[in-house]
Design a protein around this nucleic acid. Structure first.
Length: 586
RNA sequence: GGUCCCAUAGCUCAGCAGGAUAGAGCGCAGGAUUCCUAAUCCUGAGGCCGAUGGUUCGAAUCCAUCUGGGAUCACCA
């Protein structure tokens, strides 16, 4: 049940019943009508701009039209009061009975409350993380992983059919480098002294166990093979080992993908699928042979004019045409991307979302160009760029260098800070905004740490249930009909304010899903937690507002219905963010 | 030089498909616990929403230009 869509349709019904609207119905655009909660609660519970939006096309003035709408709205038994304010806002005050009905629904729906149907029938592919399988995940991957995972959860909650996907970049030259690095560790495992790892190879210790398992499997046989013989064998094992490690890293963050898509499968059988994709583009007239103009501004030292096979992406919105086949005849990374997109398109997704780091900003236009050319506009591609995360320790920036192997791994961060804190902090900011992540602040279990604030609110809800159980040993609050007691008992304005906050949840879900902004969930949860803590504290002064009233079991049951509603929305939202809703925090 | 992101309180940031008197946390000043967990709450001070134009009943929000900060540019993956 969604308060705003409910009243949206009531208001539309009222409009349709007005003569002036019926006579001009075809010229009116109802989509610009908004139904929302007024910024200032004293204005009422629901406000609409309908009169202002429609007055002009109807050739009347907003106040006059508003008066007509108000007269009709007053007939609604669930409307307590209606007024016109300012330039023509219509403010509606809901009856207490309406709030009680809404609260009953929320209690009954539990963690199902807030689910939406806006995504019904839409298949969405969310691709995120997609780190190269050349080592453990480092902290830089964190944000994209959490944002992507949360967005996918959110879309699923909003009714979309969602696939979480990971694109394994296991085909490029960095994989050859990885295999050579592993081969060195293999020789080391056989007892050879390898000394310092040569520049250009991956120095990390995480390849040591791979060397050992290669030695266990192959003995000394690889050592006497030429590189082109051992390379595929070593590559295969090493990638597999890296992916095991990466999956463990992701699991530590509570991130789980449905599909791991290997780039190598595109290159298999003489790159059949890449050729197929290029043929498809060629057939549609997007491919030609030619040379690119040199880049504007500073000319690279080694610039050479070469003929390549190019994608005419400028015709579909890109700034420059993009190479598909290099001058030596091999395929570019981008060519594989085209084939990968085509694969997704053929799998029937209506929308593909790519969650990428800000350093891929330059890649966005060409991906969009691919989507237009391959799908002919039938499929939507959205790129969500996450700005960089700056790490701090006690206010000092943490320096990292991937080359020297001196970087903070994702696992380190999760172990030091905790999964929930990492996840929540990573979305507690718009993703288009850079993010400062300070270990000291995030570890602190109090101020500056919104996740504890929200989780504490949930734990406090559970605590109220425990307290109520002690006050009323005869009542089983886990099974009693909480919703049934609400009517007639929940009517205090402080309580109704809390219900109003709960009423926003479905709207927040829809807005966040449509705009691909998972951070809104985190901010909403913080707000809700704040409203709950505030109400809880009022019980200190005003004992009659306490949830547990040991002289009135029925009232207590009703108020526990409110607490249950708050708890289940908190739990629902926290589960979208992938964090726990603890029953107690001691 | 091109492209993308950003600019809101002293600091870090929200601002809900353009709406009414622009919000929160931190910090600062004060206060609340015999009482459901003080990991909490309440009160106060603090603003030319980077600048200039435009769109309209109405702009922090949309468009253009400018200024300032960040990212990126290549047959690399």
């Amino acid at each position: 049940m969604n308060l705003f869509t409910d009243f949206g349709s009531r208001i539309k019904n009222v409009l349709e019943s007005l003569d002036i609207v019926r006579e001009n119905r075809s010229e009116l655009d109802f989509s610009r009508i908004s139904v929302e909660s007024p910024r200032d609660a004293s204005h009422g519970d629901v406000a609409t701009n309908a009169a202002m939006v429609l007055a002009k096309p109807l050739g009347t003035n907003p106040r006059a039209l508003a008066d007509q709408i108000v007269a009709k709205l007053k007939e609604d038994p669930e409307v307590a009061a209606v007024s016109v304010a300012g330039p023509g806002f219509i403010n509606v005050k809901l009856s207490i009975a309406y709030w009680q009905k809404l609260l009953k629904v929320i209690v009954a729906e539990g963690t199902e409350y807030g689910k939406s149907a806006i995504g019904t029938g839409r298949k969405v592919n969310v691709e995120y993380v997609s780190a190269n399988p050349t080592g453990p995940m480092h902290v830089g991957h964190c944000r994209g992983a959490v944002v992507g995972d949360t967005l996918a959860n959110l879309l699923e909650f909003a009714g979309y059919d969602v696939i979480k996907e990971y694109y394994i970049n296991d085909a490029g030259s960095q994989i050859d480098t990885l295999a050579r690095s592993a081969f060195l560790r293999y020789r080391e495992a056989l007892g050879e002294k390898i000394g310092e790892i040569p520049a250009g190879l991956y120095p990390g210790d995480y390849l040591v166990p791979v060397g050992h398992s290669l030695a266990d499997e192959f003995g000394t046989s690889l050592r006497i093979m030429p590189e082109d013989k051992w390379m595929p064998l070593v590559k295969e094992r090493t990638i597999a080992a890296m992916m095991v490690m990466i999956r463990e890293d992701l699991a530590a963050l509570n991130v789980h993908h449905d599909v791991f898509f290997s780039e190598r499968t595109l290159h298999a059988d003489g790159a059949a699928r890449i050729r197929n994709a290029i043929n498809d583009l060629t057939f549609k007239g997007h491919v030609y042979k030619g040379a690119l103009p040199p880049p504007k501004g500073q000319l690279p030292e080694d610039w050479e004019d070469r003929e390549q096979t190019l994608f005419r992406s400028t015709e579909v919105g890109d700034d420059i045409d993009r190479p598909l086949i290099k001058s030596d005849g091999s395929y570019t990374y981008f060519a594989a991307d085209v084939a990968y997109f085509k694969d997704k398109f053929d799998r029937g997704f209506n929308e593909m979302i790519y969650v990428l780091g800000a350093d891929h900003g330059g890649y966005v236009k060409r991906l969009e160009a691919v989507a237009r050319a391959v799908s002919g506009g039938a499929s939507k591609l959205t790129v969500l760029l996450c700005q960089l995360v700056k790490l701090y320790r006690d206010g000092e920036p943490v320096k990292m260098s991937k080359r020297s192997g001196d970087f903070v791994t994702l696992r380190d961060v999760v172990e030091e800070v905790g999964r929930d804190s990492v996840r929540f902090m990573m979305i507690y900011r718009k993703s288009s905004e850079p993010l400062d992540f300070d270990f000291a602040k995030v570890t602190e279990q109090s101020k500056d740490n919104p996740v504890f604030y929200v989780q504490y609110a949930h734990a406090r809800c559970m605590s109220v249930f425990r307290q109520a159980g002690e006050a009323f040993p005869d009542i089983d609050f886990a099974t009693v009909d909480l919703a049934g007691a609400i009517e007639g008992n929940i009517s205090d304005s402080n309580e109704l304010q809390l219900v109003a906050k709960l009423a926003e949840y479905p709207r927040v879900i829809e807005a966040a899903a449509l705009s691909h902004e998972p951070h809104r969930i985190a901010f909403y949860l913080y707000d809700l937690a704040s409203a709950f803590h505030a109400h809880w504290n009022k019980g200190k002064d005003a004992h009659e507002l306490r949830f547990v009233n040991d002289k009135n079991g029925e009232l207590t049951i009703a108020r526990l219905g409110l607490v249950r509603a708050v708890a289940s929305v908190l739990k629902s939202g926290l589960s979208i963010t992938g964090t726990a809703a603890p029953d107690e925090m001691r």
